[in-house]
Simulated assay, not measured.
Amino acid sequence: MANLGLYRSRKHNMIAGVMGGVAERFGWNANLLRVIFVIVSVASAAFPGILVYLLLWLVMPKQDAQLNAPSQ
């Protein structure tokens, strides 16, 4: 079963799994996305980035455990 939605990752999480979930959804590197997010946040005085992250944390559901299980 393919993961078509946007979920907070259980596999690639550091704080809440938001950036890991976005990276998994689009097939990007989670660590690179985190670095880019931090750079953009700091360049914009950090407040919008923190606000966006908190909003995504509240809105994005946690990934189902079934989606992480290896298929047989």
Rank of each mutant, 00 (worst) to 15 (best):
M1I: 07
M1C: 06
A2N: 15
L4G: 12
L4F: 08
G5F: 02
G5C: 05
L6E: 04
L6C: 03
Y7H: 12
Y7I: 02
Y7F: 10
Y7T: 06
R8Q: 12
R8P: 00
S9G: 04
R10L: 15
R10A: 10
K11M: 14
H12Q: 12
N13P: 01
M14G: 04
I15P: 01
I15K: 12
I15D: 05
I15F: 11
A16H: 10
A16N: 06
V18Q: 01
M19K: 05
M19P: 03
G20R: 04
G20L: 06
G21W: 04
G21D: 13
G21M: 03
V22M: 10
V22H: 01
V22E: 00
V22Q: 02
A23T: 08
A23M: 05
E24Y: 03
E24I: 02
R25C: 04
F26G: 01
F26V: 09
F26E: 15
G27L: 04
G27C: 02
W28A: 06
W28L: 03
W28G: 00
W28S: 07
N29Y: 11
A30R: 05
A30W: 07
N31Q: 14
N31A: 09
L33S: 06
L33H: 02
R34C: 10
R34L: 10
R34F: 05
R34N: 11
V35Y: 07
V35L: 10
V35E: 10
I36V: 13
F37C: 02
V38N: 06
V38W: 05
V38P: 00
I39S: 08
V40I: 15
V40L: 13
V40E: 02
V40T: 10
S41E: 05
S41V: 12
V42R: 08
A43E: 06
S44W: 09
S44H: 13
A46Y: 14
F47A: 13
P48M: 14
P48Y: 06
P48L: 07
P48F: 14
P48T: 05
G49Q: 04
I50T: 13
L51A: 15
L51R: 07
L51Y: 14
V52L: 15
V52T: 10
Y53A: 05
Y53Q: 07
Y53K: 09
L54C: 12
L55T: 12
L55K: 07
W57L: 12
L58V: 04
V59L: 15
M60H: 00
P61E: 03
P61I: 03
K62T: 11
Q63Y: 01
Q63I: 08
D64K: 13
A65M: 08
Q66N: 11
Q66Y: 09
L67F: 12
L67G: 01
L67T: 02
N68I: 06
N68Y: 05
P70Q: 09
Q72A: 10
Q72L: 14
